[in-house]
Design a protein around this nucleic acid. Structure first.
Length: 419
RNA sequence: GUGGGUUUAGCUCAGUUGGUUAGAGUGCCAGGUUGUGGCCCUGGAGGUCGUGGGUUCGACUCCCAUAACUCACCCCA
């Protein structure tokens, strides 16, 4: 038997209403913030991610689904959404549209990695990107989208943490300070951290090894080395969040693993998603448009893991209502009744009444059982008697009450009653 | 790439120190005198016991390998 590939999942009819609910909520939210949906390709030229996400990142080095197409091009399934959106922004000349450009997306993304709780090889992301605004006001707006989203969904214990990782200028100063601090302890660090020391010293700060953790508290803080502009930006962000009453913590440990982030980075964290506590992460990427071949343009965005969001809703006990019960099932006996019933459900459906009738020539009892299990609100039984008299009995399945009705009146009745 | 746990019917699980034709509950289908669902009763379909080797007269059971699932490291959403 052929199974779904490792790390992929079917979203089944029994759970689809949950997905549709959060999708709808997200769209509505983005709409009210003035963000328009963009749909980008599932695959891009590999080079886009190498340049955009960063050649040294784990995502690019070992997690991409890369293949050669029949024309000899190197193609990669998108491991995230930002690079593709940036590409589209440049390619479609969005710089000449009214600024800022505000976009959102609802996509699948693909990463080849070992699966565990809250992490899959194909997963879903809601994302938002904004281009052209350099000041902290847009940072506040982006974060406020998420804050409002979680609030609307009823999520309580999902905390916001922010940090500033500075611009390339102040970061290089800080890197040197950090290396100075860690150098004497180098031999006491784990293997990973010794590698990070050269490649990305920022990551030394969020190592989980206890042997390494003990140095974190004494390490110089990036906050102390931010340049004046970055510091002002971060202060602007904080006061902007305060202004909207958005609660947050400053966590100097937030260091995003994608190369493009600058200045503002943030995460929404949960305790319920296993060790993949990050439901949502994002930040500013002021150098990315230029890196991808456009004119220098500031940008900021986030991506939210929809599977993780679902888990969080589940574990916080938030119930998403199931779709309403279908309206009418017409049970039939004999060919005449069946033909008549098919005309009737066709008419009812054209008025958006959820109606069904037997398609398997089953016994009356089997048809009634079906109607019960599928949750129909009403049933009516049609046989030769009803066809001749034009009258039947409409049964309310919730309480078993029966009422005489004329067949002609059912359509009107249900139009009013059901919708 | 590295570790731990798991794998028997669609689903949840039993299965004795290795011994006939591998079971239960639930779900599905049908019937309980051919015009009515829920409760109850009866019957049916559905399993190469994850896969491949090995030990044995004999393997769901013991050994080895492998895959998938799952949790964790790393990294990210």
């Amino acid at each position: 038997m052929i199974q779904a590939p490792k790390g992929t999942r079917d979203i089944l009819p029994s759970e689809i209403h949950k997905w549709q609910f959060v999708e709808k909520a997200f769209r509505k939210l983005c709409d009210s913030f003035g963000y328009k949906e963009i749909r980008i390709p599932v695959f891009e030229h590999t080079e886009l991610f190498q340049r955009g996400v960063g050649d040294t990142t784990d995502v690019v080095q070992k997690e991409m689904y890369t293949f050669q197409d029949k024309g000899g091009r190197s193609i990669t399934l998108r491991p995230e959404g930002t690079a593709g959106v940036v590409r589209s922004y440049i390619e479609n000349g969005m710089a000449s549209l009214p600024q800022p450009i505000k976009l959102f997306y609802d996509i699948t993304a693909y990463r080849y990695e070992n699966v565990q709780k809250g992490r899959y090889r194909e997963f879903h992301q809601f994302g938002v990107e904004a281009f052209g605004a350099a000041g902290p006001a847009i940072d506040v707006e982006i974060i406020s989208i998420l804050y409002m989203f979680f609030e609307r969904l009823g999520l309580k214990k999902t905390g916001l943490n922010i940090n500033s990782i500075g611009c390339p200028k102040c970061r290089s100063v800080y890197h040197e300070k950090l290396k100075e601090y860690y150098k004497p302890h180098l031999s006491e660090l784990c293997g990973n951290c010794r590698e990070r020391f050269d490649r990305n010293p920022l990551r030394l700060l969020d190592c989980k090894e206890t042997g390494c953790k003990r140095f974190v508290s004494g390490a110089p803080s990036l906050q102390d080395y931010l340049c004046d502009d970055c510091r002002a930006h971060f202060e602007g962000l904080k006061s902007g969040l305060d202004n909207l009453g958005i609660e947050y913590g400053v966590d100097p440990g937030i260091v995003r693993g994608l190369d493009y982030y600058t200045r503002t980075v943030f995460e929404f964290i949960s305790e319920n998603v296993g060790t993949q506590g990050t439901i949502c992460g994002g930040g500013r990427y002021d150098g990315l448009v230029e890196t991808c071949g456009g004119t220098p343009t500031p940008g900021i965005g986030f991506a939210l893991g929809v599977e993780r969001l679902m888990m969080e809703l589940e574990s916080q006990g938030i119930v998403i209502e199931e779709p309403p019960a279908p309206d009418l099932y017409i049970a039939t006996m004999g060919q005449k009744a069946s033909d008549f019933a098919q005309q009737m459900v066709y008419k009812l459906r054209s008025c958006n009444v959820g109606a069904e009738t037997d398609l398997m020539s089953r016994s009356l009892k089997a048809q009634m059982k079906y109607a019960d299990k599928k949750g129909f609100s009403y049933t009516i039984v049609l046989g030769d008697n009803e066809i001749e008299s034009g009258k039947g009995v409409l049964k309310d399945m919730r309480n078993g009450e029966q009422k005489d009705v004329s067949l002609d009146s059912i359509l009107d009745r249900l139009k009013n009653q059901c919708k």
